[in-house]
Design a protein around this nucleic acid. Structure first.
Lengths: 167, 167
DNA sequence: GTCGTATGTGTTATGTTATAACACATCAAG
DNA sequence: CTTGATGTGTTATAACATAACACATACGAC
């Protein structure tokens, strides 16, 4: 992946120290699980590591293949269970547009995530939506609708992929 | 559906004259197709009518069943083609969260739609997101990401379904 | 320690959503 | 009435997801 010598790679399209970001995410998950009495098992840890390797949306079957090749769970339910656990505990998010999953870039923060999804390379950048983004909430309030979950996904083309097409 | 005598029913949770709203939507589609040289065929028209009957998210296979029972296209591709046409031309929207489709409530208007989705009854209300909703756009601009499509879905429980549970 | 319960995993089978590929039909323009 | 573009029928299969039940492991109560 990294062809340059420096430790900076893109996080969703923003440069950052990736090795450190992976380590941080894993440690955050360990901590959270220890505190909450959850079991951060081998399959779950490995699934998170796989998602973290690139900031890319991966299908459940894609993750499954990787797990299989390491002898860690051979059938779809294994992957879905691990991914569901990660999503339920905020370590990963589901990208509905792609029926795929991505590691959370902001573990620990209690946020309403918004995603920028590159159609071409499937890289995903995560930002946090401000409460002021909630136009629907105004309407919801007016009609008695109780919002439980918000989903904000922007689909398009990242800078790198734009360059590739018209260099 | 309507147990009351008056013509007012809910549009996604807001009361309105439903018969009129269906007629308007169909006419808008006819007009748009005529103007743009598109063919508003029997399957396409019927698919739109089916979606319009309730302001509810319907799966492609659910729409297909209805089409089949009227002898209008027997296999999945028929339904997907009709639905894709409706979505491509702004007569319907795809609700990613549900892998389902819903008729557009604001045909003709060039809008960024936002949806309120009731988990319980699958009714969907459509509102238009204001440009100020676009927090992601700020980030996108900063990182050179070109947004092509925005997707805003709020999932929760509508007023009617809340009442049913705690009357 | 060991017993019992709760939680996680393995495995089989199947359900649901979506599309590829190719043949045939229809339409509108020349 | 031919031609090309667009839409539909049909078969097959891909991709995504879960139900159900058996077995394993972790962990607290005793």
């Amino acid at each position: 992946m990294s062809s340059s010598a420096d430790p900076e790679e893109t996080l969703g399209f923003v440069r950052h120290d990736h090795a450190r970001c992976v380590a941080t995410a894993i440690r955050a998950a360990e901590r959270h699980c220890a505190d909450a009495g959850l079991r951060f098992t081998a399959v779950r840890r490995r699934a998170l590591e796989i998602l973290l390797e690139e900031h890319k949306a991966m299908g459940a079957y894609e993750v499954l293949e990787r797990l299989q090749s390491e002898g860690l769970g051979a059938q779809p339910p294994a992957a879905y269970r691990a991914l569901d656990f990660l999503v339920a505990n905020g370590f990963a998010h589901r990208i509905e547009r792609l029926n795929a999953f991505v590691a959370c870039s902001l573990p620990g923060e209690n946020h309403v995530p918004a995603f920028l999804i590159c159609r071409n390379c499937r890289k995903v950048a995560e930002t946090t939506a401000l409460p002021s983004a909630g136009i629907p909430e105004i309407v919801a309030g007016a009609t008695g609708f109780r919002i439980e979950r918000m989903l904000i996904e922007a689909e398009g083309c990242c800078a790198d992929c734009q360059e590739e097409r018209e260099p």
